[in-house]
Amino acid sequence: MLGLLLPDRPLHLLCLGAHPDDVEIGCGGTLLTLADRPGLQITAAVLTGTPDRAAESTRALEEILPSVKTHFLGLPDGRLPDHWGEVKQDLEDLSRECRPDLVLAPRVDDAHQDHRLVGSLAPTVWRDALTLHYEIPKWDGDVAAPSHYVALDAETGRRKVDLLNRHFPSQLAHDWWDDELFLGLMRVRGMECRAGYAEAFFATKVLVELR
């Protein structure tokens, strides 16, 4: 399988989430893999969540990269489409100071309405960045065929799950939140790209430079 490599220079990543654990679930392993990259910048923007939930996410992201910049809007969970204008304006305001090379956002066809809104707006705001849309497992059976993968070794997969359990105590009571779910999805995605574990992404537009 032919792989695509990120450019060998300092990179700025923007991670967008609808809820305070979206980024960590969807691309936490990818962020852990990139964390040692020299000059890496990560900005994380989350649109919903109480202050307590935002604090959980901040601690998790700071463990991955202490210099991460976080932004929480605090809109109501499950009601983002009712706040379309506020979400769009908040992202546009953020874009004036945040010019990332890579945007990681939810899928545009995600079964959750909050995820769909954030995912669909991301490429309309950051038009010149590569946007990869991550997946979030849920009871809706919301699994699709990815276009891109980031391979993870077993240690990184385990570190991701440990980070989720340690930093999101508010979510541990959910019946869907367990190690087998997170590791199982990463293992399936790893099998699909001939790796031990992987996180999967979806892209609608990718420029391939031939040189």
Rank of each mutant, 00 (worst) to 15 (best):
S67I: 04
V68W: 02
V68H: 04
K69P: 02
G74W: 05
L75H: 10
P76S: 06
P76R: 07
G78Y: 05
D82M: 09
H83W: 14
G85I: 06
E86A: 13
D90N: 07
R96P: 00
C98R: 01
P100C: 01
D101V: 02
L102V: 10
L102W: 00
V103E: 05
A105Q: 01
R107G: 12
R107F: 04
A111Q: 12
A111I: 03
Q113V: 09
H115I: 01
V118E: 08
V118H: 00
G119C: 03
G119N: 03
S120K: 15
L121C: 14
A122C: 13
P123F: 13
T124G: 07
W126P: 12
R127H: 10
D128F: 08
L130G: 02
T131H: 02
T131E: 02
L132I: 12
L132R: 06
L132G: 06
H133R: 01
I136C: 03
I136A: 09
K138A: 12
K138I: 07
D140H: 13
A145P: 05
P146A: 12
H148F: 05
H148I: 05
Y149K: 13
V150F: 11
V150K: 04
A151Q: 03
A151N: 11
A154T: 14
A154E: 14
T156Y: 01
G157C: 05
L163P: 08
R166H: 15
H167R: 03
L172Q: 14
L172G: 07
A173R: 10
W176G: 13
W177K: 06
E180F: 07
F182H: 10
L183A: 05
G184K: 02
G184Q: 07
M186V: 00
M186G: 06
G190V: 02
M191P: 01
G196M: 10
G196Y: 04
Y197L: 15
A198L: 09
A200N: 08
F201T: 07
T204E: 14
V206I: 14
